[in-house]
């Protein structure tokens, strides 16, 4: 299974699971990345990290490391 960090620019995915062992996982959930949600990688900073996803009608920027705890289908 891929993680959100591996999505390509503009690619969509549906969240399958959040890896609870990551220290940021609780906040990731709280801002709206929950299983079943569709996300899309819509922006990247010039250094390709952090990356920004559309989720629940808004845009959230997170680091690649944090995106790796979001498992997508």
């Amino acid at each position: 299974m891929r993680t959100a960090a591996e999505l390509k620019y503009g690619e969509k995915g549906i969240i399958n699971d959040i890896d609870g062992s990551h220290p940021s996982s609780r906040r990731i959930l709280e801002v709206g990345f929950t299983p079943g949600q569709e996300i899309q990688l819509i922006n990247m900073s010039a250094f390709r990290d952090p990356i920004a996803f559309s989720v629940r009608g808004t845009i959230i920027a997170i680091r690649k490391d944090e995106a790796s705890c979001i498992k997508v289908l």
Partner: peptide, 11 residues
């Protein structure tokens, strides 16, 4: 401790 960056980009 854990370094994190999670930020909403408002409209």
């Amino acid at each position: 401790d854990n370094s994190s960056f999670i930020l909403e980009l408002p409209s």
